[in-house]
Write a protein that binds this DNA or RNA. Sequence first.
DNA 1: AATATATTTGCACTAATGTTGCAAGTTATA
DNA 2: TATAACTTGCAACATTAGTGCAAATATATT
Lengths: 138, 138
Amino acid sequence: MTENNLDILKKSGLSVTEGRKKILDLFLDNEAALAHADIEKYTEAAFDRVTVYRTLQTFVDKGIIHQIPTTDNSILYALCKHKCEEGHHHDEHVHFICNDCEKTICLDDVTVPPVKLPKGFKPAQAAMVVTGVCSDCK
Amino acid sequence: MTENNLDILKKSGLSVTEGRKKILDLFLDNEAALAHADIEKYTEAAFDRVTVYRTLQTFVDKGIIHQIPTTDNSILYALCKHKCEEGHHHDEHVHFICNDCEKTICLDDVTVPPVKLPKGFKPAQAAMVVTGVCSDCK
DNA sequence: AATATATTTGCACTAATGTTGCAAGTTATA
DNA sequence: TATAACTTGCAACATTAGTGCAAATATATT
């Protein structure tokens, strides 16, 4: 079965608090990536706005979630399914944004293909976002 | 030689104004992608903040520039070198962010490789951002 | 070239989003 | 259970973005 919030928090050496458990559950229960605003909505403002910001930042730092690039001035977050070590993310999978349901989904099994860069460019990380229609909306 | 601002604006059916010319020149003169803040800085606030927002939006709508996804809650814009039609961008090239000089560069000649998506997913567009060290900073 | 029409700009205002310090509350540790 | 360490919420502040409208500017028309 899927990991539970407690295990994840403990493994990351984080104090176990109500907020962290609830927010982590949101990620565990949602296939789609979440923005700060989504979390506020789902938790119905049970936690302070600032707490949510700090929780997300902590989770990113600990490698529990990763950020997904967007073109709309927002940051999306999603669980790191393949274990990310602290400070080093292994999120080289493709992200899919559905133009229909607007959800952003991590395609954990689709890895970003390598690209040949011009002379002198040394790649470190690669992110890929594909838009289109997802399997639910097809 | 490179296209001048006037040609581009006329071709897009836009009124030719000081602001549009200056902002377009910034893109023509800069290899790196620009954020709203960069434009404000370079123009030394000669134009109202709102004008810059609207100009950028207009340029995106007309296919003059395109947006580059980022994970830091900002939008970067860059010229569409390969002609984009209105409402339909052809910006399927790789974007490179240098961790050293912090510049974002469009690698217009490096196209995004096709990826195999899970069953039911229909791709429409793909964006790719690679981080690392650029040819200037190597 | 002067006027009429359409478009664009700047301002004022509003709203949304993100950040920081600190006291109070909560969790982990001894 | 007492202590130390950490987390939270509040308040204040800062930054970034969006809208309506009158004035200014650009294009079209005569």
